Simulated scan of single mutants.
Amino acid sequence: MVIPVLALFALALVWALMAASAQIRCVDAARAGARAAARSEPEAQVLAAALLAAPDRARVDLERAGELWRVRVAAPTPGPGPLTLTLSAEAAALAEDTVGVPP
């Protein structure tokens, strides 16, 4: 009786570690995309930079709002049906082409 419970507990811990790792990768991907966008790189390069750091099956959205670039990364967690969650992260960076420009 104890062994199946321990096995289930171990599987839950592994799943939680995989989800935490995917969340950290989402944060890193959003930051990488925001840095690339702030440097005024082409949109394709910004998306490529974000997707390179993102987990598998991630979706990246890029938006400019005034002087800020916003990058959102969303990715599903690995796991069977009901254990699948959508993880997301957002990063913003000031566009370098606006620095030092009088308002």
Score class of each variant (00 low, 15 high):
residue 52 L to W: 12
residue 52 L to Y: 06
residue 53 A to W: 08
residue 53 A to M: 11
residue 54 A to V: 14
residue 54 A to M: 09
residue 55 P to G: 01
residue 55 P to R: 09
residue 55 P to I: 03
residue 55 P to W: 11
residue 55 P to E: 02
residue 55 P to T: 03
residue 56 D to G: 07
residue 56 D to R: 15
residue 56 D to N: 12
residue 57 R to I: 03
residue 57 R to P: 05
residue 57 R to E: 12
residue 57 R to H: 15
residue 58 A to M: 11
residue 58 A to C: 10
residue 58 A to S: 14
residue 59 R to W: 14
residue 60 V to Q: 03
residue 60 V to H: 01
residue 61 D to R: 13
residue 61 D to W: 11
residue 62 L to M: 09
residue 62 L to R: 08
residue 63 E to N: 09
residue 63 E to C: 10
residue 63 E to Y: 03
residue 65 A to M: 11
residue 66 G to L: 06
residue 67 E to L: 11
residue 67 E to H: 11
residue 67 E to F: 10
residue 68 L to T: 01
residue 68 L to R: 10
residue 68 L to P: 01
residue 69 W to D: 06
residue 69 W to P: 00
residue 69 W to R: 00
residue 69 W to S: 07
residue 71 V to W: 00
residue 71 V to Y: 01
residue 71 V to T: 04
residue 71 V to C: 00
residue 72 R to F: 10
residue 72 R to S: 14
residue 72 R to A: 13
residue 73 V to R: 03
residue 73 V to Q: 07
residue 73 V to C: 04
residue 73 V to W: 02
residue 73 V to S: 04
residue 74 A to R: 10
residue 74 A to C: 05
residue 75 A to R: 01
residue 75 A to N: 00
residue 75 A to P: 08
residue 76 P to S: 02
residue 76 P to C: 01
residue 76 P to Y: 07
residue 77 T to F: 00
residue 77 T to Q: 00
residue 77 T to P: 01
residue 78 P to Y: 08
residue 78 P to W: 11
residue 78 P to Q: 13
residue 79 G to M: 05
residue 79 G to W: 06
residue 79 G to T: 08
residue 79 G to F: 05
residue 80 P to A: 15
residue 80 P to D: 09
residue 81 G to S: 12
residue 81 G to D: 08
residue 81 G to T: 10
residue 82 P to Y: 07
residue 82 P to K: 12
residue 83 L to E: 04
residue 83 L to Y: 07
residue 83 L to C: 12
residue 83 L to Q: 01
residue 83 L to T: 13
residue 84 T to C: 10
residue 84 T to D: 00
residue 84 T to I: 14
residue 84 T to E: 13
residue 85 L to E: 07
residue 85 L to C: 10
residue 86 T to V: 15
residue 86 T to I: 13
residue 86 T to N: 09
residue 86 T to K: 02
residue 86 T to A: 07
residue 87 L to S: 02
residue 87 L to H: 04
residue 87 L to N: 02
residue 88 S to W: 11
residue 88 S to G: 14
residue 89 A to F: 06
residue 89 A to H: 05
residue 89 A to C: 06
residue 89 A to W: 04
residue 89 A to G: 00
residue 89 A to Y: 00
residue 89 A to I: 06
residue 90 E to D: 08
residue 90 E to P: 07
residue 91 A to H: 05
residue 92 A to T: 14
residue 92 A to F: 11
residue 92 A to I: 05
residue 93 A to E: 12
residue 93 A to I: 06
residue 93 A to M: 13
residue 93 A to C: 05
residue 93 A to W: 07
residue 94 L to A: 03
residue 95 A to D: 15
residue 95 A to I: 03
residue 96 E to L: 08
residue 96 E to Q: 09
